[in-house]
Deep mutational scan, measured.
Amino acid sequence: NMVHPNVICDGCNGPVVGTRYKCSVCPDYDLCSVCEGKGLHRGHTKLAFPSP
């Protein structure tokens, strides 16, 4: 899995490795796959980016 450079997960404050989930509503909100799997930020649609 690749690390998305200059992207920090807003759920756990860790690096985003593998798929990046970017909120389509909020201007700067990203989740890693673990936090997305936990259902964080469920109210907004997210775009999935498998690689940087």
Rank of each mutant, 00 (worst) to 15 (best):
M2L: 03
M2A: 00
M2C: 04
M2V: 01
M2S: 07
V3Q: 04
V3C: 10
V3N: 14
V3D: 08
V3S: 13
V3I: 11
V3M: 09
H4I: 10
H4L: 12
H4A: 12
P5E: 15
P5Q: 12
N6I: 04
N6M: 09
N6W: 04
V7H: 04
V7W: 08
C9N: 00
C9G: 01
C9P: 02
C9Q: 01
D10T: 15
D10W: 11
D10I: 10
D10N: 13
G11N: 10
G11M: 07
G11W: 07
C12S: 01
N13G: 04
N13H: 09
N13A: 07
G14C: 08
G14N: 10
G14S: 11
G14F: 04
P15G: 08
P15I: 07
P15C: 07
V16R: 02
V17M: 13
V17E: 09
G18F: 04
T19G: 06
R20F: 10
R20P: 06
R20M: 10
Y21L: 05
Y21T: 03
Y21M: 04
Y21P: 03
C23P: 01
C23F: 01
S24D: 14
S24Q: 15
S24M: 06
C26I: 02
C26P: 00
C26D: 03
P27C: 03
P27Q: 14
P27D: 05
P27E: 07
D28R: 11
D28S: 10
Y29A: 06
Y29H: 04
D30P: 02
D30T: 13
D30W: 14
L31V: 06
L31T: 03
L31C: 04
L31Y: 04
C32T: 01
C32I: 00
S33F: 06
V34Y: 12
V34W: 04
V34P: 12
V34H: 09
C35Q: 00
C35N: 01
C35A: 00
C35W: 00
E36V: 04
E36A: 04
E36K: 04
E36W: 05
G37C: 08
G37E: 14
G37F: 08
G37S: 11
K38S: 08
G39A: 06
G39I: 02
G39P: 04
G39L: 06
G39R: 06
G39C: 04
L40T: 12
L40W: 09
L40S: 07
H41P: 01
R42H: 13
R42S: 14
R42Y: 09
G43H: 14
G43P: 07
G43Q: 15
G43T: 13
H44P: 02
H44I: 02
H44L: 02
T45C: 06
T45Q: 12
K46N: 14
K46Q: 04
K46H: 11
K46R: 09
K46P: 05
L47G: 09
A48F: 08
A48S: 15
F49L: 14
F49Q: 14
F49W: 10
F49N: 12
P50Y: 04
P50R: 07
P50S: 10
S51L: 10
P52M: 02
P52L: 04
